[in-house]
């Protein structure tokens, strides 16, 4: 039995609110995606900004109407059974301003417990358990506006567990968090799946996160799924080739090279650019020559273990960064 089944799902947005007599231009945000998530699986949608991840999450959580295609959550149709779905799922939305900053953590959870129909006799216990679980029990009466970014995100996760959902949707759950908070959140998500049997569908544009955390990953780009497999399975796509990382100093742009290389890091302070991609031994000298001609000063050329980022670069010619 699948927790999430998606068939050829599409979404297009009008660029401006359609009015009579206004010519409508469309943005194709999701261009027909198909995938299934098993019960108890931790499934990741990995893709750069604007790939269509948030749009997908919003359609699956019944916040947005799909333009075309179908999806079922726990067997319920997202177009027809929105309320049944809402009772059984929950989500952590993108961004920081999603909870009531003028209320305390406790008051926030009480509110959500009620609008999720948590039975009265379970409410108190559930809220206490969740606040302890995410380590906010000591600060439960503080206003959320005084919380750090990481604490806010932990509260958002507690909120997402308030109705003991079978399926959890997490949109970029570690975006903007400090390193420690990110680690906490990732371990927490993994435990939800391993110890509590939850099904999790998360989105991220951090390939390390996807690689370490997810059972299976769909790589999404420009509204299309371009690869779907386990992290190891995906890395097989590049295993035979060599992942090369070149660090150089130079002005100008090094995007859109005639090789499948992408800028993966840019240290603007020291003016150092890091390029990455698959280049075999014969091609490498030509590449270096090309870069030098472009005015680059090569600092280092190194072979690396292939990662998911290499998979993405190989498939798209671009990096995952913003």
């Amino acid at each position: 039995m699948y927790a999430v089944e998606v068939f050829n799902l599409k979404k297009r947005y009008p660029k401006k609110i359609p009015l009579p007599l206004r010519k409508v231009e469309w943005v194709e945000a999701v261009k027909g995606i198909t995938f299934k998530v098993k019960k108890g699986e931790l499934f990741g949608l990995l893709g750069p900004n604007g790939a269509g991840k948030t749009t997908t999450i919003k359609m699956l959580t019944t916040l947005l109407e799909p333009t075309e295609g179908e999806a079922r959550i726990l067997g319920y149709n997202i177009r027809k059974d929105a309320r049944e779905i809402r009772k059984r799922i929950n989500l952590v939305a993108e961004g920081e301003r999603t909870l009531y900053w003028r209320l305390s953590a406790y008051e926030n959870l009480k509110y959500f417990a009620r609008i999720y129909y948590v039975p009265k006799r379970e409410e108190k216990e559930r809220i206490e358990e969740l606040l302890k679980l995410v380590g906010l029990w000591e600060r439960k009466d503080d206003l959320v506006m005084n919380y750090s970014r990481g604490m806010k995100q932990r509260l958002a996760i507690a909120k997402a567990l308030i109705n003991d959902p079978e399926v959890l949707f997490l949109d970029e759950p570690t975006l903007g968090l400090d390193v420690q908070s990110s680690i906490f959140v990732r371990e927490f998500i993994r435990k939800l799946v391993d110890e509590r049997g939850k099904t999790v569908l998360l989105t991220t544009h951090y390939m390390v996160e996807a690689e370490q955390l997810c059972d299976r990953i769909a790589i999404i780009d420009h509204g299309r799924i371009i690869a779907l497999d386990t992290p190891d399975g995906l890395k097989k796509l590049v295993r035979d080739e060599d992942a090369v990382e070149i660090r150089l100093k130079g002005k100008g742009t090094f995007d859109n090279l005639p090789w499948r290389m992408a800028v993966v890091d840019e240290d603007s302070e020291r003016g150092i650019i890091t390029l990455r991609g698959q280049v075999d031994e014969e091609e490498l000298p030509k590449l270096v020559e090309w870069l030098v001609k472009k005015g680059a000063k090569i600092i280092s050329v190194e072979q690396k273990e292939p990662t998911l980022e290499d998979v993405f670069i190989k498939l798209t010619g671009r990096g995952l960064r913003d």
């Binding site: 916040l63 009772k87 939305a93 301003r97 999603t98 909870l99 959500f112 999720y116 129909y117």
Partner: peptide
């Protein structure tokens, strides 16, 4: 403020909200 989405994602009926 961005807080409406979580309420709209909950099963509560809109009229009740």
């Amino acid at each position: 403020a961005g807080t409406l989405e979580y309420s709209f994602a909950a099963p509560i009926r809109r009229l009740t909200f």
